[in-house]
Amino acid sequence: MKSFSTLKSIALAFSLLACISCNQQTKNAETEAKAPKTEADPDTIPLNSANVKEVLTAYAQKHPDSIAVISTRHGDIKVRLYKDTPLHRANFVRLTKSGFYSQGEFYRVVKGFAIQGGDSDNRTMIQTVYKVPQELNRKYIHKKGALAMARYGDDQNPDKESSSHNFYIVQGRKLDLDEIRAWEEKHGIKYSPQEIKLYQTIGGVPSLDNEYTVFGEVIEGMDVIDKIANEPVDASNWPRNAVPHTIKVQ
Rank of each mutant, 00 (worst) to 15 (best):
L136K: 06
Q24V: 08
N28K: 09
V170H: 00
P193N: 10
R80V: 02
N91D: 13
T124N: 11
D121F: 13
I219A: 10
E105Y: 07
I202A: 06
N230V: 00
K139E: 15
I228Y: 10
L208D: 03
E184R: 04
I219N: 06
Y199K: 02
N166F: 03
P42A: 09
T72H: 10
F14E: 14
S164K: 07
I10V: 14
D226I: 04
D65W: 01
D234Y: 09
T85L: 05
V132C: 05
D159M: 14
H165I: 14
V129K: 14
K27A: 15
Q25E: 14
A114W: 05
T201D: 15
I126D: 13
F92E: 02
L147R: 03
H63S: 12
N23F: 09
V205I: 10
D209F: 02
A33K: 15
F167E: 03
G75C: 05
R89I: 00
A242W: 01
D176E: 12
D234V: 07
Q61I: 01
G145Y: 07
S102A: 07
G99R: 11
Q194D: 15
I141M: 09
H165M: 15
P158Q: 05
H63F: 00
S102F: 05
S9W: 02
M222K: 11
Q61W: 00
L16H: 08
V110D: 00
Q156L: 15
E54R: 10
N230T: 01
A60W: 00
E30S: 12
A114R: 01
I219T: 11
K2F: 12
T31V: 07
V224G: 10
G118C: 02
S120G: 12
I189P: 07
T6P: 00
S163I: 04
L7Q: 12
S9V: 10
G117K: 05
L175V: 03
E135W: 09
D121A: 12
K186M: 12
R73A: 12
K53A: 14
V109H: 02
D43G: 01
